[in-house]
């Protein structure tokens, strides 16, 4: 210890830390991703061996072409975008409006509905009654019905996150806005919504991931090829006519389903992580 200064010791420590993290990241992230990619380039027979080796016979073009053509990729992509974007926006708006109201009210009725909203996060969905209700209002099997159910089942997360956050906010700003004569909607839009940005950002990341990858509701609530989202198109296509798993196509599908989210993540990565790590999840 006498020969190394604290500075050098901490540098050594830092280096060791990163070496360790690097070693940890290999099996944790690199190997799964590599296996996914490399096997999506192989023929069906070769991919069934599930090795990490490079393909001896490249079938990348064939596999990915199949994902695009037989896999109905662009239909699925279009539907996923058309569903995910409005759902996330609407959930954020409705959720933050409700959260503001819940955080600032002591009324019994609202306390009860807040509690119900919080419960909706942790209880499993009741699919059959949901389908029954959608059938009654004529929306079962349609994109609208699916979006309605997604919105309703995800809004609780935003309410739960945002209520805790809003309670930590001082009421001074909104009171000032009220005194300036701003209506409630104006106050919400110009004061509350900007203040909530960190927590809504956290919520938005969780929402996008949840909505984009939703499989269970999509399976039951969407009918027909024309309405299918990416998880649906690719799941049904990746299974061979015999019902067996064709790994090369499964992996090519997984790659193509994940890519839109992945691109968004790479572009927004800084924002996502800083948003999450500074955001109000613990609020």
């Amino acid at each position: 210890m006498s020969t190394t200064s604290p500075m050098q010791a901490s540098r050594l420590q830092q280096t060791l830390k990163y070496i360790f993290l690097g070693i940890f990241a290999v099996p944790w992230v690199a190997v799964p991703l590599w296996m996914l990619l490399v096997n999506s380039f192989k023929t069906e027979g070769e991919s069934s061996v599930l090795s990490l080796a490079l393909p001896t016979e490249w079938a990348a073009v064939e596999n990915y072409t199949k994902v695009f053509t037989e896999g109905n990729y662009f239909v699925g992509l279009g539907n996923s975008l058309l569903i995910a974007i409005p759902v996330v926006v609407v959930v954020l708006i409705l959720g933050s409006m409700a959260a503001w109201a819940y955080a600032r009210s002591n009324a019994m009725g609202l306390r009860v509905t807040f509690f119900i909203s919080a419960m909706s996060i942790m209880l499993p969905p009741a699919i059959i009654p949901t389908i029954f209700i959608l059938t009654k209002i004529g929306l079962q099997g349609t994109t609208w019905g699916y979006m309605l159910v997604l919105t309703a089942t995800k809004v609780g997360v935003i309410i739960f996150l945002a209520v805790g956050f809003v309670r930590t906010l001082p009421t001074d700003y909104e009171e000032a806005a009220q005194l300036d004569g701003a209506g409630r909607l104006r106050t919400y839009w110009h004061v509350i919504l900007p203040l909530m940005r960190p927590v809504l950002f956290t919520g938005a990341v969780m929402l996008v991931i949840g909505v984009w990858n939703d499989f269970l509701f999509a399976l039951f609530l969407l009918a027909g090829k024309a309405n299918a989202t990416l998880p649906l198109t690719l799941y049904s296509f990746a299974l061979a006519p015999t019902g067996a798993v064709r790994w090369n196509l499964v992996f090519a599908s997984v790659v193509m389903t994940s890519i839109p989210l992945f691109i968004a993540y790479v572009v927004l990565q800084r924002r996502v992580l800083s948003g999450l790590t500074e955001g109000g999840t613990t609020g």
Binding site: F132, Q140, L219, A223
Partner: peptide, 23 residues
């Protein structure tokens, strides 16, 4: 024909569930 491909592992569940809900 509007054809709905039911993924085989979910065949029983999907059809029974939709059926039970009256679809």
């Amino acid at each position: 024909l509007d054809i709905f491909d039911v993924p085989p592992p979910e065949l029983m569940n999907v059809i029974q569930t939709k059926w039970a809900a009256g679809e």
